[in-house]
Structure formats: structure tokens, C-alpha cells
Design a protein around this nucleic acid. Structure first.
Length: 591
RNA sequence: GGGGUCGUAGUUCAGUUGGUUAGAACGCCGGCCUGUCACGCCGGAGGUCGCGAGUUCGAGUCUCGUCGGCCCCGCCA
């Protein structure tokens, strides 16, 4: 260190206890108030602010030098801690009862005028914040977010180590595994025309660690998926990834619940209830229209098919005839809030999920108000209203369409209604397991089944015999952990027998040669004493986002990417030297 | 691939029906100031209105294209 004095304290830790001590503080000039005679400086580091005072009567030289100081300069000051007189105490500052009278001032570095003061809570465009992330990260909110994130990983590591887990690193340069998201590819110089892929998850490696007898593995690990970004999706993100041998759902759930409880306790001081409720996939879909329901409020979907069977209302009749559904939500006591305009907006929302429209009935004191009541006979209308438990002041919204459209639309309308009616208690924490997912989904485009979770997920034991006869009805030993309507983790009990794994590939339309080429190493490993095993992976960024109450995942990532997957600070991705391309034997097709 | 929205001083924004020299606040620069803590007072500098076409006597304002930020659909085993 070339500076004259070594730091003795952080800004923000001095109190009346250090009065009369000589201290050295280092930090950034947050604000400077030059009174001509006295100069006050609020000196900042990540621990807080301390006011330092330069008085020409104490040190002429330091005071003179302080006149050249500007915001954002990095300085070291040495001086005596003084108690502030009663009337000069600043109650807004943690260190407001003291100040440091400077004897010596050293400028450690100057600074350009920054484009914005990171410390302030002034609204600055996110693009500018990302370009100068080093300024932005000084903001107390972001510092808190990153600190909380650190507390999450620290707690997870602690709990998992206590439970005899070992953290093992798996490769970042690995093999491209189709089935799933797009891979990020890395060309291999030593193997021209061949590529590594960045892992979408350490899935296969952690299973192989189980074959190795590692017994309990975890890793806090970066994963990569080359898909479009969202508020809660980045191309590189972090997982708390774990896998256990000789485990079943019950044991795994218990362990995860202890980990989540510890995380809430350590980060926010909140005690959460365990065990978490378990919701079957099909029930979640029927009641909430999605597999990650927000359980902080009650509003549930009601099926009206039985009630409206035989209706002459063409829209409903046609949907029923074509195997569709008619389902509805009752927005209780929404009379005032769900105006005509609001209902129009909700219709637009439903349309984004493929609905052709949204029917509604308002239950007014003087009768029903609706564009569709005229199409129904009174007794059918009565039956519908009874089934919906409709009372004066309620609004019923209907979606009639194919099952997927009905589910998607109503799931989002449910959230929309909750926001409009203020049904969500922000303090509530609703964690739940969703289980018994279908093993397979039929992909219309590819005309084949694809794995809903991934192809290594075990089917439920009692259904093994159906693998050939009725694959579409198979259920998986897969589970998601849902927190306030967000999927924060997902996993499964895996297939540990190579015969079953091969059957699974067959169901997915992956033939022997293909399976061999893509996953041969796993199939081989499964033949050498693979224990029964299962695991789960948590989205660390999402958990941090929810625990910090952040609006976006970018608020809990130090250096996030934009929606076009670029980094505004480094300007990655960028063009590279021709020489580099040549070494990699890469050329672009410019046709 | 598609839909929406935003882009004006360093920053956050205003800018009327298309009309003279594009404004404010904060920040910045200079001066004054010994108890401020969002210090105060006085003065000053600072603009390719994202970029490119077009319409018009005249465009920050209207049209088209394009680039970028954000939100969403598709996509995300």
C-alpha cells in the first residue's frame, strides 16, 4: 500500500465510543459542503457515511487541499473523532453523533464527474445504470440485494454441509445436449469444427456423481440457456443444484424445507411454516390454471361445462362441441373496480394468451348486466350464477376455448383480478410443492412426445407397465417448489436403471444410435451400479429477487445482461479478430 | 419471429394546433461564505431533440425506416 496511513475504521462504524481517538478513514466523497472556512465532507464506503470536517485552524494545508476535492474522489483522512454538540447532531445519519476533525488528507484518486450519483435514489434509466454498473452498485438497495444474495448462498452451503453434502464443481465446457433450451456453443481450437456447449444445468454430471458414490452432492453453479430474456430470465443464471442417493420425495422435501426455513430466518428473520403443502399438478391446473399458482389469495377457477350443456349460445356451444372448456372466475365485490374499461383491458390480456374473447356478467343490485345474458334461458343463468356463488357486487368472467387457452387466460386473469382488487397480502409467504406432473407432453410441431421435465425423470412406479400401452397418461416423480406464484425450484427422482432409461428414449422417439451418440456416457454409467437417486435445483436469482422484493432479476445480479443479451458495460458480445476466427477454423457465411 | 412502450442538456423531465433564439430542476464550472448535513447566495457554461429519409414555406412535434432500453406473446427439457 502506497498510501501514508492505514485505514483504522470503516465509514459508518464510528460512534461516541471512539471520541478523542485518532482514526484513519478511507472512502469516496459522497457530498462536499464548502463554507469557505469550514469544509464538510460526507465520506462514504459500503458501511455508511461519516462527516469529516476540515478546519483551516486545525490544518491549513489539509484545508487548502480540500478545496480541490470533488464528489467521487477517493481520499484517506486522519484525524480525531469529536462528539458533536447536541444541536449539531444529525439524527438521519447512523454516525450523526460524531465527526472527524481532519489533520491529514490524502487524495488517493481523482474522479471524473460521474454521469449519475450511484448513491442517490434518483431515477436513472436502466441502460445508463448498466453501462456504469460500478456507480449503480453503490446504491444502498443494490448493495443490500447482493448482500442478501450472499446470505442465501452462505446459508444454503451451511445447511447442506451440515447434512453431509459435498460441493463439487462440474465442467463449464461440456457436451451439447439437445432436448431442451438452445445451447451456447464454444468452438474448439484443438478439435476443428467441433463445439463445446455451456451447460444448461449440471444434470448428467450430478447423476454420474451418484454412480460414483458421492451420495450427496450440491453446487452453486452458473447455467446457460440461449433463449429470449424476461423480467425473471437471464441467459446465464445461478442454481443451487443438489442430488442425493437412496432418497425419496419425503426425505428430499424435508431437507429442502429446512433449507428454505433457514434461508428465510437468516436473511429476513422470518419463521416460515413447514412442511409445505403439496398440490397435485392436475389439481393446480384445474383450480388455478397453472402449475405455479400464487396461493396468497383464494380466487379459484370454476368449470361450467355441465351447467351450460345444451345452451343455444353459439360461442359456448361450439367450444363444447370441439372438446373445449367453459370456465370462469368470480371476482367478488369488484363492482366498482371492474369498470367497463377494466373489463376491456382484461379482455385484451386474455387475448394475448390466445383467447378469442372474454365474456362477463356483473351482478348488480337491479339485476345482471352483461353482453351475453340474453343468450341464456333464465334457469340456465340461475344455475350458472349459483355454481359461481354470485352475489350482488360480483363480476364473473368467462373464457370458452381449448383447454390450454382457458387455463393460460384464466391463470393470468386470476392474477390480474388479484392485483386490481388488492387481494394479495404482500407479507404472506406461500410455499408449496407441486407434484405428479405428466411425464410427457405431446409436441404438435414435432409430432412426438417430449419430456415435460427432462428425459431422466422417473415415471411413477405403479405406472411403469403403461410405458408402452398408454404413455400419454404417465405421471412423473417430478416436483416443483412454488413461492408466491413463482417456480423457484424443480427436480425429480431420476431413472437409475438403464433399461428404463432406454424405454424412455424410445417413448421420446430417440432411437438407439441417437441415444448412444447424445447420452451414451450416462447410459453406460447407469450400467455400473447406479443407486436410486433424485435431486432438485433452485433458481438462486429468482429466490433473491423475491426475498429482496425486487421487480426484476437484474436487481439481484451484479452484472446483468439486457433483453438482447448484451452487456452494456463490456459491450459483449463483440466482434473478434480475424486471427481468432482463423485459429478456430470459423468463417461466416455472408450469403 | 411477433405485439406494445419509451428515446429532448451530464441526469430526470416539460415542450400547446407543425411557427421567432428548445425550457425547468438537479448536476457541472467560477466567485462569496466557520456549523452545514439535499448548506446558502451571486454569476456562467452546457443541445446532431437516438439515427436516416420523407411530407411541408417551415418538423423536437406528422409519416416511413432504422438503432437502442424496458414489458409481453412465442421460446425457456
Amino acid at each position: 500500500m502506497t498510501q501514508k496511513f492505514r485505514r483504522t475504521h470503516h465509514c459508518g462504524e464510528l460512534s461516541e465510543n471512539q471520541v478523542d481517538q485518532t482514526v484513519t478513514l478511507c472512502g469516496w466523497i459522497h457530498t462536499r459542503r464548502d463554507h469557505g472556512g469550514l469544509i464538510f465532507i460526507d465520506l462514504w464506503d459500503k458501511n455508511g457515511l461519516t462527516q469529516v470536517v476540515l478546519n483551516p485552524q486545525i490544518d491549513q494545508l489539509a484545508h487548502q487541499e480540500a478545496q480541490t476535492l470533488r464528489n467521487n474522489f477517493v481520499i484517506a483522512v486522519t484525524g480525531k473523532v469529536r462528539a458533536r454538540p447536541e444541536d449539531m447532531v444529525n439524527p438521519k445519519l447512523a454516525t450523526g453523533k460524531i465527526e472527524v476533525y481532519v489533520d491529514e488528507l490524502e487524495i488517493l484518486n481523482k474522479s471524473q464527474t460521474p454521469p449519475f450519483q450511484g448513491w442517490d435514489d434518483q431515477e436513472v434509466s436502466e441502460a445508463l445504470r448498466l453501462k456504469h454498473r460500478y456507480l449503480d452498485l453503490r446504491n444502498a438497495r443494490l448493495l443490500r440485494n447482493l448482500t442478501l444474495r450472499d446470505q442465501i448462498t452462505r446459508t444454503a452451503r451451511k445447511i447442506l454441509h451440515e447434512q453431509n453434502f459435498t460441493e463439487v464443481e462440474t465442467p463449464i465446457l461440456t457436451k451439447s445436449t439437445p432436448e431442451g433450451a438452445r445451447d451456447y456453443l464454444v468452438p474448439s481450437r484443438l478439435n476443428p469444427e467441433k463445439f463445446y456447449a455451456l451447460p444448461q444445468s449440471p444434470q448428467l454430471f450430478k447423476q454420474i456423481l451418484m454412480v460414483a458414490g458421492m451420495d450427496r452432492y450440491f453446487q452453486i453453479v452458473k447455467c446457460f440457456r440461449d433463449e429470449d430474456l424476461r423480467q425473471d430470465r437471464q441467459p446465464e443464471f445461478s442454481q443451487i443444484d443438489m442430488e442425493m442417493s437412496f432418497v425419496d420425495e419425503e426425505e428430499l422435501f424435508g431437507l429442502v424445507e429446512r433449507m428454505m426455513a433457514a434461508i428465510y430466518k437468516e436473511t429476513l428473520g422470518i419463521t416460515i411454516e413447514t412442511p409445505f403443502p403439496i398440490l397435485k399438478y392436475q389439481d393446480a391446473m384445474n383450480r388455478f390454471g397453472c402449475d405455479k399458482p400464487d396461493l396468497r389469495f383464494d380466487l379459484e377457477i370454476v368449470d361450467l361445462a355441465d351447467t351450460v350443456t345444451g345452451t343455444e349460445f353459439k360461442v359456448f356451444a361450439d367450444v363444447l362441441k370441439n372438446g373445449g372448456q367453459i370456465r370462469a372466475l368470480n371476482a367478488k365485490k369488484s363492482g366498482e373496480v371492474l369498470s367497463r374499461k377494466a373489463l376491456d383491458d382484461m379482455t385484451e390480456l386474455a387475448k394475448t394468451y390466445g383467447a378469442k374473447g372474454m365474456a362477463w356478467i356483473k351482478v348488480n343490485a337491479d339485476g345482471l348486466q352483461s353482453p351475453i345474458t340474453k343468450f341464456f334461458k333464465p334457469d340456465m343463468l340461475d344455475a350458472m350464477m349459483k355454481k359461481m356463488d354470485a352475489e350482488v357486487g360480483d363480476t364473473i368472467v368467462f373464457i370458452a376455448d381449448a383447454p390450454k387457452v382457458v387455463a393460460d387466460s384464466l391463470a393470468h386473469l386470476r392474477l390480474d383480478i388479484a392485483r386490481r382488487l388488492n387481494l394479495i397480502d404482500g407479507k404472506k409467504i406461500c410455499l408449496a410443492w407441486v407434484t405428479e406432473f405428466p411425464l410427457l407432453e405431446y409436441d404438435e410441431e414435432q409430432k412426438r412426445y417430449v419430456a415435460m421435465h427432462h428425459p431422466f425423470t422417473a415415471p411413477m412406479a405403479e405406472e411403469l407397465d403403461k410405458m408402452e400401452s398408454d404413455p400419454g397418461s404417465l405421471k412423473a416423480r417430478a416436483y416443483d417448489l412454488v413461492l408466491n406464484g413463482n417456480e423457484i425450484g424443480g427436480g425429480s427422482i431420476r431413472i437409475h436403471q438403464s433399461e428404463i432409461q432406454q424405454k424412455m428414449f424410445k417413448l421420446l422417439g430417440i432411437n438407439k444410435e441417437e441415444a448412444e451418440a447424445k447420452f451414451g456416457f450416462l447410459l453406460e454409467a447407469l450400467q455400473y451400479g447406479a443407486p436410486p437417486h433424485g435431486g432438485i435445483a433452485f433458481g438462486l436469482d429468482r429466490i433473491a429477487m423475491i426475498l429482496t422484493g425486487s421487480a426484476s432479476i437484474r436487481e439481484v445480479i451484479a452484472f446483468p445482461k439486457t433483453q438482447k443479451a448484451t452487456c452494456l458495460m463490456t459491450e459483449a458480445p463483440s466482434e473478434v479478430d480475424k486471427k481468432q476466427l482463423k485459429e478456430l477454423k470459423l468463417k461466416f457465411d455472408l450469403s
